[in-house]
Design a protein around this nucleic acid. Sequence first.
DNA 1: GCCGTTTTCGGCCCGACTGTTTTCAGTCG
Length: 582
Amino acid sequence: MKNEEIARILYEIALYLEMKEVAFKPAAYEKAAESIEALEEDVEDIYKKGGLKALEDIPAIGKGISERIKEYLETERIKDYEKLKKQIPVDIQTLSAIEGIGPKLIKLFYQKLKIKNIGDLERAAKAGKLAKLPHSGEKLQEKILKGIEFYRRSHSRFLLGAALPLADKIEKRLNKAKSVIKAACAGSLRRRQETIGDLDFLVACPERSRGVVMDFFVSMPEVIHVFAKGSTKSMVQLRSGIAADLRVVDEKSFGAALQYFTGNKDHNIKLRKIAIKKGYKLNEYGLFRGKKQIAGRDEKEIYEKLGLAWIPPEIRNNLNEIEAGQENKIPRLVELRDIKGDLQVHSNWSDGSNSIEEMAMAAKKIGYQYTAITDHTKDLAMTGGSDEKRLLKQMSEIDKINEKLFKKGNFRILKGAEVNIRKDGSLDIKDEVLEKLDIVGAAVHSSFNLSKEEQTKRLIRAMENLHIDIIFHPSGRLLGQRPGIELDWDEIFKAAKETGTILEINAQPSRLDLNDDNIRRAKNMGIKLSVGTDAHSTAELSYNIYGISQARRGWCEKKDVINTMNFPEILAFLKKPKSKRF
DNA sequence: GCCGTTTTCGGCCCGACTGTTTTCAGTCG
């Protein structure tokens, strides 16, 4: 898959063109890069199937850039790009990723000081050479040193699971602070992206109190560096390595600012274009006709005045949600309170840290009607996975617990397992034992490097087993650590649909597997999904919030997620043969 | 270089902060 490297080259061309102060082309290349990056399909496949014409059908790709992509696919290089690189031969990717450095400074540093990479830059800054350049000074030099330090320490995105609790804490604190009318977190966090670049906070307060609020923000205990502090905007770095911005607005602009800073960029650009067409102007202060603000206090009225239904933040990606909003066809997305039980939970019978009783009681306390217990099986010896004999023993143990604790029928433990899908697609537990379980998940835990064809065949074979209800964490990816196995998703979805196999949305913050795009594709094919926490302790049952966010990002409604069913319904559903379930 | 309810030419989202300036350039989101 060459999408990523092609996108990177297009980004670099954009930066080079910006250095040369070419008008408009940088933005065009940047958009093209984003478009390639967002593509699920392999660009090379697209080209092989449909030639140049097919490349031009990709959004933001036209005649010029499709020619260059073709050149890269055929010759492994792009002449124009090589030419640009020769003129200013620097590690443009790293240098431009340092906070406060853009194409103009990279060019200046190279031409005056021959700075080519982050090491050169650091040496020059420490030797005081940067301060002597035109339009530069001591402060710029210091800012760059801080930027380098920050880059080295935390050049990565943060998992939603790490960012959300921190952001909630700060948001609550801001809401309680003196003079603050209301506070909210916007940005990628509000959209519940899998990973978060930085935190964007928003506060409404009286104009005279702005200084006080800014002082409060930059002196929070988590703040270790202040990048910028003005009357309406501040940027800080937090101890955990993540950066946080605060914007302060008047109450009458809070909704507009919340909309504006939630994004994403493409969603906002499209909205602003709609505003222009209607004779309005949309910015972070409101929707304006001439100088008159006609909306802005709350977010919903902005969408309404633009002729749209309000759009949930999780689907603001410019992936057809604006058109759906215009036609009033935004679905009611599944919500946390819709979830009636957890379908992937581990106990201390394998690698979980709590007993079956403890997990069940914790699930009941959340308000669930049921939980499955799905411990590992014998291939995963290091987790204490059960063989057939021990699995049968665990089943009778669960029967006893159900009888003892939940006799009234107000809660139920489902007997389950997370069986291992072997390299050839066979399973590590015999059918005659699987048959006795209430619910069976199967998952890949090894052989991550097989070919796409082999992996696809492997997963389909597991789905064809009549006892496998769910494929757990289908791709096996670990965010920031390991890509998922290569799969022909069209084939996987086709097989899931035909066999009646449920696909999981795994709620572990490092998994979130399926991803948003695949969830949406599965949903559109009528495949049912389950949200499972894969909890290994009682505390991890709360990961359901991340699973729900992910389901919402894939446009899931309540009917698409099977564990929104009440206990009698899900029991009846699981009793049906697989082929009759969807 | 891309795109089209402004459609094959002529536009291209918009505003805040910093630093080095004294009216603005660069960066960021």
